[in-house]
Design a protein around this nucleic acid. Structure first.
Lengths: 192, 192
DNA sequence: ATAATTCTGGAACATATGTTCTAAATATCT
DNA sequence: AGATATTTAGAACATATGTTCCAGAATTAT
């Protein structure tokens, strides 16, 4: 028999993800990618595939990592309203501390408009967040922590939709305070 | 003397803008661009410059066109609150009827993170919208059309920040109703 | 240790890409 | 109309890019 294992595929993909994150899909070259991954192009093509497949795996890795992190973070919080607030505030923290913004949003605007496969992954990611949040909101309404009369679906959409604008705002102004104030106002709206 | 005029530069730039809009900065090739512009590369380099300069002029053209349109549209509306609502609702219309989303937002996430010149143009565009809206909000508060106790600056930021998320939502779900419902809720919040 | 088989580095390849060059076309002024 | 200066089309160029190929290295079962 011959050689079996090789490089750490997950690690290599996470390195590729960093490159795509910084440079975008079209901006990243195969040489950028293989250099960062620490492997040669032959290994890449033998295991992961071409540039597009690598990108797919990179954004899947990104979205799945975020899902795991979000679940873990909100698990211990008993009050649904407190969990919602925690979710919003930790989004603010990430947005204002990540120099390269959000890979999922960048991908949405760069390639999801024309690449159906990418669009589906992004959509699935979005739906995960949606489900996470709507469960909290339903519980919060049930427990009368939220007094908003609106339906849970709309309110979930409404909250999620803030994050993208905050990312944009931070790219343009690099002003943490503005984001924090908007988040505070949003939280106040929910409580009201 | 020799030849003086040539092709219509503004028209050519608007054609280039369409290509960048659809394909992004990195996704658009010089051959894509010159073909759409109907000119050869020598003419392009003699008058407008290289790819980056063409991009700068394209996004300037985009933002300036939008500014003119916005001013014209809101001019005749007497009530500041009605103007704000009109602004929000016409944003919804554009978002849900534009297959290629918004060039300014796409540019923000594709290149504004690394290209300072682009970032400044996008920032100026954002500030135009900001000023347009804050004037309306101040007047609306003054005329007691808005009962919100928040400061005008924050409220302006808060409103503008919805549009980007709506664009993202429409790319992902292609669902006009979701956008419309969020817009209705936003307007209700302002009135409250 | 040896054989068998797969993996890996990096050269090689074909094409794409941004830009420049050249020669011909064209508009302006006299 | 003719001279002149500039523009323009498209070939040409150098480099970049995504992908493949090949020779040698490496690992496992015998």
């Amino acid at each position: 028999m011959a050689r079996s294992v090789e490089f750490d595929e997950q690690l290599a993909i996470s390195r590729a993800m960093d490159v795509f994150w910084k440079k975008g899909y079209n901006g990243a070259t195969m040489r950028d990618l293989t250099e960062a991954m620490g492997i040669s192009s032959s290994s890449l093509y033998n295991t992961i595939g071409d540039k597009h497949q690598l990108f797919i795996k990179s954004i899947k890795y990104y979205t799945e990592s975020r899902m795991t992190a979000a679940r873990k973070q909100l698990q211990p919080i008993k009050s649904p309203l407190k969990a919602i607030e925690k979710f919003i505030l930790s989004s603010v923290y990430v947005i204002t501390h990540e120099p390269d913004s959000c890979l999922a949003i960048k991908t949405t605007f760069e390639v999801a408009t024309t690449d159906e496969q990418v669009q589906k992954i992004i959509k699935a990611d979005n739906e995960f967040t949606y489900n996470l949040l709507i469960n909290l909101i339903r519980k919060a309404i049930e427990m009368k922590e939220i007094k908003v009369s609106q339906d849970a679906e709309m309110l979930t959409d409404y909250i999620i939709n803030h994050f993208t604008g905050w990312h944009e705002s931070f790219i343009i102004h690099r002003d943490k305070t503005r984001i924090k104030e908007m988040a505070a106002f949003l939280i106040k709206q929910i409580n009201q």
